[in-house]
Nucleic acid binder design. Structure first.
Lengths: 187, 187
DNA sequence: CACTTGGTCTAGCAATGCTAGAAGTATTGC
DNA sequence: GCAATACTTCTAGCATTGCTAGACCAAGTG
């Protein structure tokens, strides 16, 4: 059994390696530079090994996206740690969301913009995605009335802001004011 | 001169034809079905004529997007016509925005999601895009305080809602409630 | 040491966006 | 009317993409 285990472990390591390489390459040169050939070259294997791990390129990108959801959820969770006062929690969580979108633009792209077709409202929804949503829900305070929908709309607004900011529609100088308006609006 | 004019007119017509064909094909089979070959076949010309009108495929998609902005602006303008009472204006404009995103999903995709790289915050910003923004601004009422930013955030929220709704994150049954929350939040 | 099993690579397919140079067609000057 | 010119359009093909079949090879087994 030990030999099968070792193989399994090596496979898992290579799986990691592929996702990490895709992540790195995308962050360095954008998603259009992420081709199966370059990816294979980066991990020192030939193309077909990629397809023994993933169904296709979209599958690899989805894996990167899931990792992104994990990091987002973690960041949102952390952002509450610094703050004690309740009204400031929302602001910090929102700021953390936008910071994530700013600091990991290409991963954010993989998570939401690109047609990776991650299932959102199904049992297959990644746990990390649910966790991130739960953080937003919690940040809205103890008022349970329509809480789910308010969280949806909050997420919508955050996502929209992130996209518009990235495309230059919201200038850097205005981002803070936008955040103010957003937080005030949802308090 | 008349002959040059005729040529110019014919070119303009063919320009129209290309954009219309791209629009139709995208709506029928999605953007990944829009290839230069199929487009050429649809307009009964060979591929290179496309490149005598547009710099490339992205340019064609950008043209479709601009057309989309025009329709969106028109719809937002129209949505106010039915309503007299002021508080209801915001609701109708928001509903019109979401209706547009629902009824023209692939054009909406070209407008915001796909990497068409339309300039947002520059002089080259399409007039139609400015017009659409102006409609949102007006719908927020006469309160001029931070009006621009509030309009940005509103657009952000609407865009986010449209995307999340499309990806299934917001079920059809919940869309109305979301809209309610949104309108109430921004009143 | 043969031999089976399973992983890896070489080579190539079909489709893509895009382009150079040939071929054709309308317009103009004589 | 006819050759020369200017402009348009097409044929053919390049480089690159995602993906795969079948050859190759090495590790593990009797």
């Amino acid at each position: 059994m030990s030999i099968a285990e070792r193989r399994e472990r090596q496979r898992a390591e290579r799986h990691e390696l592929i996702v990490a390489a895709a992540c790195e390459l995308a962050e360095a040169e954008g998603w259009e530079a992420v081709t199966t050939r370059r990816l294979a070259e980066l991990i020192d294997y030939s193309q077909p090994v990629l397809y023994s791990h993933f169904k296709g390129k979209a599958d690899i990108m989805a894996a990167v996206a899931v990792r992104g959801f994990e990091e987002l959820a973690a960041r949102l969770r952390m952002s509450k740690a610094d703050v004690a006062g309740e009204p400031d929690i929302l602001r910090h969580v929102c700021a953390a969301y936008l910071d994530f979108a700013r600091s990991r633009p290409v991963i954010y792209e993989a998570m939401f913009v690109l047609p990776t077709r991650i299932k959102f409202a199904s049992e297959q929804t990644p746990a990390a995605l649910r966790a991130a949503f739960a953080e937003l829900l919690a940040a809205l305070g103890p008022n349970r009335e329509m809480a789910e929908f308010r969280a949806e709309v909050l997420w919508s607004a955050l996502h929209g802001m992130a996209v518009l900011e990235r495309s230059g529609r919201i200038p850097p100088s205005g981002a803070a004011s936008c955040l103010n308006v957003l937080v005030q609006t949802f308090s």
